[in-house]
């Protein structure tokens, strides 16, 4: 194990083998801003357009990225899994990072979230907004309460000691991705990924990441009431 780790460290990481997966639904206003941040980076980018009604696809195709399109709207969980399938089947990716399309994540956090994986220590790294003090300043209190309730629910149902369950910023090794399959098409996939990490006994860690609560991301983000939908999907959505 130790020998493997040192060997992995010595090899320099080819950034084109790091794939950034960005699910997008009606994000014509922000997807360009997000992709602008990647222009001088060597990462490979995969955008999944979940059947947007606006010009998300047109804006996306102005950038050097791969775009997959859903014929009908399925939800963020389904879009992520579509991206995972493509990467596993058609690319030589080593690491995969999931990234939100509404501009709330910071590209500069990507090396930080990759570090625990490239060192060979962990199978998955999960972004957490609660690990950095002062990080959640712009967050409305009701949102904070709902997120904390989600964390509590996940801790009880999966036994994982995580601090932030509904953060779209995650990184996986390609081997991990082969073991995970998202069946929750809508928003309950966040908890489902954690459940599968627990079931497959994968090594995971949390990494502090910055979340920007802009007016846009607040508008586009999940409404508080949808947390009840998520709970319902988790309790009764199993087939």
């Amino acid at each position: 194990m130790n020998e493997k780790v040192t060997r992995a460290n010595k090899r320099t990481l080819n950034l084109s083998q790091v794939w950034i997966v960005i699910p997008a639904y009606n994000e014509e206003e922000s997807i360009g801003i997000v992709l602008d941040q990647f222009i001088d980076k060597d990462y490979s980018i995969l955008v999944i357009d979940d059947c947007s009604k606006d010009k998300t696809s047109e804006v996306t195709l102005k950038y050097p990225v791969t775009l997959l399109k859903h014929m009908i709207n399925l939800g963020q969980g389904a879009a992520l899994q579509t991206g995972f399938d493509y990467i596993v089947q058609h690319t030589n990716a080593k690491y995969v990072v999931t990234f939100d399309s509404d501009g709330q994540h910071d590209v500069e956090d990507i090396p930080k979230i990759l570090a625990p994986l490239t060192s060979g220590q962990y199978d998955a790294a999960l972004g957490s907004r609660f690990l950095k003090p002062g990080n959640v300043d712009g967050i409305p209190w009701i949102k904070l309460f709902t997120l904390k309730a989600g964390v509590l629910f996940t801790r009880i149902s999966t036994g994982l000691k995580v601090t932030d369950t509904h953060n779209g910023f995650r990184a996986f090794t390609i081997e991990t991705l082969r073991k995970i399959h998202i069946n929750q098409n809508r928003m309950a996939h966040a908890s489902e990924i954690l459940t599968q990490i627990a079931q497959n006994k994968l090594g995971y860690c949390e990494v502090p990441v910055t979340i920007r609560y802009t007016e846009y991301s607040k508008k586009k983000g999940q409404s508080i009431f949808n947390s009840l939908n998520i709970l319902w999907d988790l309790l009764f959505g199993r087939d």
């Binding site: 997959l68 859903h70 009908i72 579509t82 058609h90």
Partner: peptide, 18 residues
């Protein structure tokens, strides 16, 4: 829908930038 999406990737602007 997933099979259709994966089978038909579209590549954006390959000539510019990188």
């Amino acid at each position: 829908v997933r099979a259709n999406a994966v089978a038909n990737p579209v590549f954006g602007m390959p000539t510019i930038a990188k």
